[in-house]
Nucleic acid binder design. Structure first.
Length: 117
DNA sequence: GTTGTGACATTAT
DNA sequence: CATAATGCCACAA
């Protein structure tokens, strides 16, 4: 017997929620990445839906989910945009022009090698 | 059943 | 950088 319609969809949403809930503080992922980790490759849009439908009681770290290239998908200056940026900054991340400045290998080198390490 | 839209992604131009 | 095309899943009209 195949699952009733709506049940499978619910399962997908919950799978996505689980993945998002496991995102470590100070780290970030993307819609596509979350979808893939949830076993739903190429279902990035579904992740957006899932986050929108997510009950607040779950307390999901939705701010750690970004668009491709670490971009904040909300319209610049919108309430959600500022909220997300605020939370990201609070976790020690760097946000420049609506984008999370992901640590590059070069910078890490400079950081590790910089002081006569 | 088709069309349009959405917290998106990838590839090509 | 921007645009267009295609893919993906779900929902509303």
């Amino acid at each position: 017997m195949r699952p009733k319609p709506g049940e499978a969809a619910r399962a997908r949403l919950e799978a996505i929620w689980r993945v998002v809930a496991r995102l470590p503080e100070g780290s970030v992922s993307t819609y596509g990445g979350v979808a893939a980790s949830a076993g739903l490759p190429r279902a990035a849009r579904l992740v957006g839906r899932a986050l929108r439908e997510a009950p607040k009681s779950l307390g999901l770290p939705w701010h750690r989910v970004l668009g491709a290239g670490g971009r904040i998908v909300f319209p610049a200056g919108s309430r959600n945009f500022r909220e997300q940026r605020r939370r990201l900054l609070a976790e020690g991340l760097t946000v420049v022009r609506g984008r999370v400045q992901l640590p590059r290998a070069r910078d890490l080198d400079a950081l590790l090698w910089g002081s006569d390490g």
